[in-house]
Amino acid sequence: MIVGEQKPLAEIKEIVGPYRKLLILGCGTCVKTCFAGGEDEVATLASALRLIFKKEGQNIKIEEFTIERQCENEFIQEASEAIGRNDSVLSLACGAGVQAIARRFAKIPVLPGVNTTFIGVLESQGVFTEECSGCGNCELAIFGGVCPITRCSKKLLNGPCGGSRHGICEVSPDTECAWQLIIERLEALGQVHNLRCYISPKDWSSSNSGGPRRLVREDHII
């Protein structure tokens, strides 16, 4: 899922500052799961903002609304009435959601309330880890299911660098060395021979380096 994190209150306050009627729009999918933009977060943020504005004597009306997914028209449409009533929208969706809302409502500023962080996994309660960079060409099969492109700080494809110590990456003591994990996995799978394979340079054209991507499923288009 896409992991995001709510922006600091001060920043949100800054960006919504110019508007008088604000809709805080939540998204019930990924950002809800990572507690950045579901119903609860919308309510909490709205409450906090109201307190800020009340304290500063500003009169800003705040409305709350949450839709199932902000990246899909059918759901966005449900918010159109609420959006119409306001002069700005603070979207708590991921960047895709913010843009999807923005492109549907040309005349209303859509502001991001969440920093979209990465594609990740709920590792354990309250801990999210980045696991995928969306490179567009998955090669996890040879890496024993651990992605060196995302999880190795140097995107190394042919084994660990010299900075790995006790399975920890040189970048941060909180970061496991992806290559350590790959090696362990391959050992457990009996595929250590993969380590001897030379992995040729990554073709980045399928990733974001090839410009914004577009996926067309011809079979779904009529």
Binding site: K202, D203, W204, S205, S207, G210, G211
Partner: peptide
């Protein structure tokens, strides 16, 4: 780079 000799490069 998409136009050049190395469209597979990471920009």
């Amino acid at each position: 780079q998409i136009f050049g000799s190395q469209p597979d490069a990471l920009n």
